[in-house]
């Protein structure tokens, strides 16, 4: 290891210990377990800073945080899955004895044996570990793919296709009281007639040309090409707008972390 690396490591260790001690002194008398609490806060702050250091470049602290994260989170989801799905949803339907053991409410039912299907498929999946019978896990895979295809077929058709069509049934003239009325009340106020009509025109033309952009079976030339080009512009506005809108959310996340560092760790009153 390089000398500078060692010096940085030592520095961070000293800072860590200092923070622990100072934090513990600050918490003493206010909370029980203050030594433990001080350690946890310091450790959280250390991990936070380790991840942030990746912005500068890859380094041993980031590597440590990353590896820890992978290990802990994999086990986290395993535990959650086991206790909430297997113990929470499967056992109460399959076995009275196990339900008693895990102290969960047994749910009797006539067709509960159907819950053996996923258990069998799950076990078949674990056949993956065998070199010779690994192929049998394809059966479970096939079941999942069939379920996915079957369930999503109707759902997407209903909500993303059919309902979006009917949502586009907009009149191109809004509050129409004759041409004369329209021109004598012409203005550009946000809730005005013209702006509302413009909105409906944009929605109508935008959706139509957007769909044209996605047409696969026709070369995008001529009128069709022009429409598809307009479609791209509409999509570009969409993407630009979504991007701009999102910036805000992303900043909030950083605010949350910075608040943690300054308030919970460094003890600023903010």
């Amino acid at each position: 290891m390089k000398k500078t690396t060692l010096i940085i490591m030592a520095g961070v260790t000293v800072l860590f210990l200092l923070s622990w001690i100072i934090k513990a002194l600050a918490l003493e008398g206010m909370q029980e377990d203050y030594i433990k609490k001080a350690f946890l806060v310091t450790f959280s702050a250390f991990l936070t800073l380790s991840i942030l250091s990746f912005l500068y470049r890859d380094n041993p602290f980031y590597k440590f945080a990353e590896h820890l994260f992978v290990g802990v989170s994999a086990a986290f989801w395993m535990s959650m899955g086991f206790w909430s799905t297997i113990v929470g949803n499967l056992i109460p339907r399959l076995s009275q004895n196990l339900s008693v053991f895990f102290k969960v409410h047994y749910i009797p039912g006539d067709f509960n044996f159907r819950f053996y299907i996923p258990v069998i498929l799950g076990l078949l999946l674990l056949m993956r570990l065998s070199r010779n019978y690994g192929w049998i896990s394809r059966w479970s895979l096939a079941f999942i793919v069939g379920t996915t295809a079957g369930l999503n077929f109707i759902r997407y058709l209903r909500s993303d296709f059919i309902k979006q069509i009917s949502a586009t049934f907009v009149p191109l003239l809004v509050d129409w009281q004759g041409t004369g009325h329209f021109f004598s009340n012409l203005d550009l106020s946000a809730s005005g007639q013209l702006v509302m009509m413009l909105a409906n025109w944009t929605i109508f033309l935008g959706v139509m040309s957007g769909i044209i952009y996605f047409f696969f079976s026709k070369e995008h030339t001529g009128m069709f090409g022009r429409a598809s080009r307009f479609g791209i512009w509409v999509l570009m506005i969409t993407f630009g707008a979504s991007f701009g809108y999102t910036v805000m959310g992303r900043i909030s996340l950083l605010v949350g972390r910075i608040t943690f560092l300054f308030r919970d760790w460094l003890g600023f009153n903010i």
Binding site: A167, T168, G206, V207, G210, I211, V234, T238
Partner: peptide, 8 residues
């Protein structure tokens, strides 16, 4: 326009 694009 955003709504139109999203919908398409």
């Amino acid at each position: 326009p955003n709504l139109a694009g999203q919908r398409a």
